[in-house]
C-alpha cells in the first residue's frame, strides 16, 4: 500500500543545501508494523512527513494505495491526510483547555460528520486505547503523559485511517508508560492496522516486525524482525 521509489528530499536554506533523504526506495504492505530507526538527523522525520502526506519529495515518486501523490497540491494532500493517515506525535499535540472527547472528535469535524455519530466513534476509539469513561470530559491538560498519548492515539484512530504514523511517541514518557503505549500499538497492529513507528532507540524498534535503519538519508538495513519481536516480554504478559 506504500511504495517509495527513489525518493530524495533536499532542504535549501540560502546557499546551504541539506540532503535529508537520498534515493530511498521501499514498500510497506497493509498490516505491517514497521519501525524506522536511525540517529538524530538521519532523515526519519523527513521520511515520515512524506509518508504522512505533510510534504512532498524533491525527487522520486510516492505511491499511496496505488496512486502517485508526490506532486499533489496542498489541499489535495490535506484530503489524503484526512482520509488515510493518523498521526501520533512525540509531544502529543492535544488542544489545551479542551475536553478529551472533543480532542478525539476533531478529525471528524473536518469530515463534516454529524455530531451524534462522531461522538460515538470517538468513544469507541477511546475505549480502544483503554482510557476509562471517567476521563472523557476531563480537560486534556489534566491528564498524565501516558493518558495524553493514548488520547492522541485515539484521535489518530478515530477516522479509521489505513496507516498510523508515530514519530517518537514514547520520547516524552518514562519507560513504564512508554511500554503501555507500545502495547497499544501492538494491539492495534494485531487488529490489522498498519503502523509505522519512528524512533532512535533500538529497544523500542525491537517491538516492530520489521526494522528499517536510516543513516545520513539512506536506508542501510531493512530487517525482518518478526521472530524476535514475538519474544519480547511485554507481549507475553498480555
Amino acid at each position: 500500500m506504500i511504495e517509495c521509489k527513489n525518493i530524495s528530499k533536499t532542504y535549501k536554506s540560502g546557499a546551504a543545501e541539506t540532503k535529508a533523504l537520498k534515493n530511498v526506495s521501499f514498500k510497506i504492505k497493509e498490516g505491517e508494523f514497521v519501525a524506522i530507526i536511525g540517529q538524530s538527523g538521519s532523515g526519519k522525520s523527513t521520511l515520515m512527513n512524506i509518508i504522512g502526506a505533510l510534504d512532498v519529495p524533491s525527487n522520486g515518486s510516492y505511491f499511496l494505495d496505488g496512486s502517485d501523490i508526490s506532486s499533489l497540491s496542498e489541499d489535495e494532500l490535506a484530503d489524503i491526510r484526512k482520509k488515510k493517515i493518523g498521526f501520533v506525535f512525540q509531544s502529543f499535540n492535544l488542544l489545551k483547555r479542551t475536553s478529551v472527547l472533543r480532542n478525539v472528535v476533531l478529525p471528524l469535524i473536518y469530515e463534516e460528520m454529524d455530531k451524534k455519530k462522531r461522538e460515538e466513534l470517538a468513544r469507541k476509539a477511546l475505549r480502544g486505547v483503554d482510557l476509562s469513561e471517567d476521563h472523557f470530559f476531563h480537560l486534556s491538560n489534566q491528564l498524565s503523559g501516558g493518558q495524553m498519548q493514548r488520547v492522541a492515539i485515539a484521535r489518530a484512530l478515530v477516522n479509521d485511517p489505513a496507516i498510523i504514523l508515530a514519530d517518537e511517541p514514547t520520547g516524552n514518557l518514562d519507560s513504564k508508560t512508554g511500554d503501555i503505549i507500545l502495547k497499544t500499538f501492538i494491539d492495534l497492529n494485531k487488529k490489522g492496522k498498519t503502523i509505522i513507528l519512528i524512533t532512535h532507540e533500538q529497544s523500542i524498534a525491537e517491538y516492530a516486525s520489521r526494522i528499517i535503519t536510516l543513516k545520513d538519508g539512506e536506508i542501510i538495513e531493512d530487517f525482518d524482525n518478526n521472530e524476535k519481536s514475538k519474544l519480547i516480554p511485554i507481549l507475553k504478559n498480555k
Binding site: 504522512g52 496542498e74 490535506a78 484530503d79 499535540n93 488542544l95 478529525p107 473536518y110
Partner: peptide, 16 residues
C-alpha cells in the same frame, strides 16, 4: 501555531 499545524495534519484545508 502548533494548533494550526495539528489541525492541518488532521486534514484541515486552507479554507478551514
Amino acid at each position: 501555531t502548533r494548533e494550526i499545524g495539528l489541525r492541518k495534519s488532521l486534514g484541515a484545508k486552507r479554507k478551514d
